[in-house]
Amino acid sequence: MNPEPNTVDAVIDAVSAVFMVVGALMSLAAAIGLLRFPDLMSRMHAATKPQVLGLFLLLASVGLQLRTWWVWPVLLVAWIFQLLTVPVSAHMVGRAGYRTKHLHKELLSKDELEAVVQKAAKAARESEADDGGNRTAR
């Protein structure tokens, strides 16, 4: 159908090759971020990256290489699973990190949560009978 199927093939191959290399670089970037950033919270920003953009690029290159329409919904479902789970785990780890003081205060230019947390902690101490952790949505 196409006048020059070989050219189209070559373009698709080149695009998927670029996607693969960039996707692998995203993993490398996450590792560099893990090693270079000073505290848990900034490391988390680096860690979410290969799981969102990197996986997207790699799944797209799989789809381009297979060249059949029915793999696209499968790949999309795999990616959406990732999109739904990554923020939740990042939030849970980040929240635990903030509460257990795994963050360097001197690296923050502004902290608008601290006052709220301290107020809530004081309130929790005053009403000892109750479970102190329930002040926010879980």
Partner: peptide
């Protein structure tokens, strides 16, 4: 330094494994 750092790094290691599997599929 902390357990959470290790969990985070293990998560990234799993993501790297997933990336390797994807590249195997594409190639």
């Amino acid at each position: 330094p902390s357990l959470l750092d290790r969990v985070l790094a293990a998560d990234v290691l799993l993501a790297i494994l997933g990336a390797a599997l994807c590249i195997d599929m594409a190639v």
